[in-house]
């Protein structure tokens, strides 16, 4: 039996302050092969197509079923998760690059802590009285719950930010994922109590007004989260807040 080989071009970088370089690898083809399996194959025999032994490729992964967001990278020019990138559905040779808007740690592994800091800036949480047993939560209609659920599936993977022309490595733009979370918490009956704080945070520098409306965020979101809808919604909430501030503050 002859096995077909898959050719991969991987953009590598040894450390944050060193120059990137490309290496080519080949791995044996199998049915339903995904990019994670290819990278695991390279770990088992870390040598380039030319037969040069190299260090295994470094990348982030965990759940391998597209719910954790870890294995996000740029595959054939498109930012997405490596676990759901099936080799048979990709153009060959396959190119793998790290995400472009976040600091490189090593190879395909980038530092996305900016996203988590942004969640702190907009206070993406619900202020509860405490963990003690004080009874049921608020009664909610199922259709409202379903709308919030879609927003809460955001894995903080960063696809929307990597694709966004407005989000760059040297500005403060909060980006679509963060706006989506503001909408998620402002839509909760208890979360609403703190909506002003969240809106103030998105009205400042790097806030909602900086969105250039390129709409690519929604195209690359692996969870089909209605990001542009969230941006419009938060834009509207922020405008109302500005009017309120003018009238009452």
């Amino acid at each position: 039996m002859t096995t077909k080989n898959i050719a991969l071009k991987i953009k590598r970088q040894d450390a944050p302050d060193t120059k990137p370089y490309w290496q080519e690898f080949e791995v044996p083809h199998r049915k339903n092969l995904n990019i994670i399996s290819c990278l695991q194959d390279i770990q088992r025999g870390p040598a380039t197509t030319k037969g040069v032994t190299v260090n295994p490729v470094v990348w982030e992964c965990n759940c391998l079923e597209e719910v954790c967001g870890a294995c996000t990278m740029v595959i054939n020019g498109r930012v997405r998760q490596a676990c759901t990138a099936l080799v048979d559905k990709l153009e060959h040779p396959i190119s793998l690059e790290p995400m472009t808007k976040f600091p490189i740690v090593r190879d395909l592994h980038v530092d996305r802590s900016r996203m988590f800091k942004n969640l702190k800036k907009v206070k993406a949480w619900i202020n509860i009285d405490g963990t003690h047993d004080i009874g049921e939560g608020p009664i909610l209609p199922e259709d409202e719950r379903a709308k919030r659920y879609v927003l809460s599936e955001c894995m903080t993977c960063g696809c929307c930010l990597d694709a966004c022309p407005q989000f760059t490595s040297d500005n403060n733009f909060l980006g679509a994922a963060t706006f989506g979370q503001v909408r998620l918490f402002n839509a909760h009956p208890t979360g609403k109590h703190n909506q002003e704080e969240r809106l103030e945070a998105v009205m400042g520098e790097g806030g909602i007004a900086d969105c250039g409306n390129a709409q690519v965020c929604v195209e690359v979101c692996p969870k089909n989260i209605p990001l542009t809808e969230s941006i419009a919604d938060i834009g509207g909430q922020a405008t109302l807040q500005i009017i309120k501030n003018l009238l009452f503050k």
Binding site: E136, E142, R145
Partner: peptide, 16 residues
Amino acid sequence: HLMDRLGVAFNRSPEG
């Protein structure tokens, strides 16, 4: 109930 109060989007019954 605590997790519900924390905002987990648990599926709801017809009455909410």
